[in-house]
Computed example of a mutant assay.
Amino acid sequence: MLIEWILPRKILYGAGSVRAVGEIVEQWGRQKAFVVTGKTPERFSEIFSSLRDAEIPFEIFQVVREPTVEDAENALECARKWHAGIVVAIGGGSVLDVGKVVAGLLTNPGPLRDYLEVVGNAKPLTHPAVPFLAIPTTAGTGSEATRNAVLDVPDQRVKVSIRSPLLVPWAAILDPCLTFSLPSPQTVASGLDALTQLIEAFVCKRANSLTDAVCREGLALAFPSLPRAATNGRDEEARGAMMLAAFYSGVALANAGLGAVHGLAGPLGGFLHAPHGAICAALLVPVVRTNIRLLREREPQNPALARYAELARIAMRCDTADAGDLPQWLNAYVTSLGVSSLADFGLREVDIPVIAEKGQNSSSTKANPVALTKEDICEILREALHGQR
């Protein structure tokens, strides 16, 4: 089995690590930096001071919503006008994804849509991106370690990706202090996204010994730490554990793949315009329950069953736990965190067949540990619709 292992070239982790921004960026030459942030860039005055101390001129671009293709095109146009040679992104997954697009397209000619999957030509990037520093302020998507960026196409009610190993950030700074002010609902949604990515990468068809290692570590960190971080946002130990778990989930995603939760979350996100992490949270238990049941019925010798059993032991901290124990325990865990149903985000029964067809054909669903029929997926969506976890 050929294993490809792609990571950022430099990773800094720890409280206060953002103070090293200027030191990292100046190693790439004193070029103009294009800084992508969210709605409140004033939060990052310490980072901006670090850039000024390093004599790095910079321009700020704000991402104020889940980014559309048009938003990314606007960011790219601004970066080109600024003649940026470096990109720094500070924010959640949406901000980091826009940063990736800008870094990649500054060196690759042509319009963005040429490189997009589904709605474009999926043209491969051929030139390395400009130096890109990713600084996450949520512990969820793991975008600081992945090779893709996700953009919304509202007129087609779909989210699409641009994907290339050349999009992996050059460096990532993981400072848990940046997540202290994240409200509890966002902490839960982003944390369950990371947890879902760890679970799916661990059991998917493309799991390998390298991603297994980071998944095991990430799962052991995330299960006990997420409720603590959601309850007390300034719990530095819990916030640090979730920051690492999210990073590990991105590493696993980039180097193994995911499963049906993310295969369905893509079309649902474009259809409902609901937060990605919240959609994943609503789907997690129905997908895990269905996968375990179908594996037992159709493929009882599939090694994924043993992996689900190991997951149960990690989650429940019980040496005798088995795969069959996981759905009920996971249901109680997710319920305790206040997860919403898909109906709460506006999904209707009549929408299910369309979403199921789109989800069945996604690359993530194809990596699911057991093949799912359209009927299987419809049943998953019905459970998630009504919150029948």
Rank of each mutant, 00 (worst) to 15 (best):
Y13S: 07
G104Y: 06
A72D: 10
A241F: 08
L337C: 10
N368S: 12
I24T: 08
I86H: 03
G218S: 04
V88R: 04
L105M: 10
I279P: 05
M243T: 15
A194G: 10
P275Y: 06
L337Y: 02
H273C: 07
L96G: 06
P128K: 01
P8Q: 10
V370T: 07
R298L: 15
K100P: 01
H127L: 05
R298C: 03
T365P: 01
F34K: 02
P169R: 10
K10Q: 15
V261H: 00
W170H: 12
T365S: 13
V25N: 03
C378R: 13
E77V: 09
P300R: 11
A229K: 12
S164M: 05
I90L: 00
A309S: 14
V285R: 14
L116P: 01
N255C: 07
R382P: 02
G16M: 04
E299G: 08
R293I: 07
H273S: 12
T107S: 09
A304I: 14
E23P: 04
I162A: 07
I135L: 02
G346T: 06
A281E: 03
A172R: 03
L182M: 11
I56T: 08
V35T: 07
R157H: 12
A254P: 04
A139I: 01
A134E: 00
P111K: 15
D53Q: 11
W82N: 12
R30Q: 15
R43A: 09
E349D: 04
L96W: 02
S209P: 02
F202I: 08
L7A: 14
S340V: 07
P109G: 15
S94L: 05
P303V: 03
T290G: 01
G91R: 04
T137P: 03
P136C: 00
A306E: 15
R348P: 01
Q156L: 10
D175E: 14
R234W: 03
G270N: 07
A256P: 14
L253D: 13
E144F: 05
I6L: 15
E117P: 00
S17R: 11
F345Q: 00
V203F: 09
K374V: 13
G91D: 09
Q31H: 15
A265F: 10
I162P: 06
P369C: 11
E42S: 14
R382E: 08
N208D: 15
D97K: 12
A356L: 05
D114N: 08
R216C: 07
A371L: 06
L253R: 06
K32S: 12
P327R: 03
K39N: 07
V64T: 15
G92A: 09
L76M: 00
V95K: 09
Q197V: 04
A323S: 14
P109Y: 13
G22T: 02
A15L: 14
P227F: 02
A281Y: 12
T320D: 15
Q328W: 04
L337F: 03
A315C: 09
V88I: 13
D212S: 06
E55K: 15
A274Q: 08
N331D: 14
V21N: 03
A103S: 13
V36R: 11
L192I: 13
G263W: 08
G266Q: 10
S190R: 10
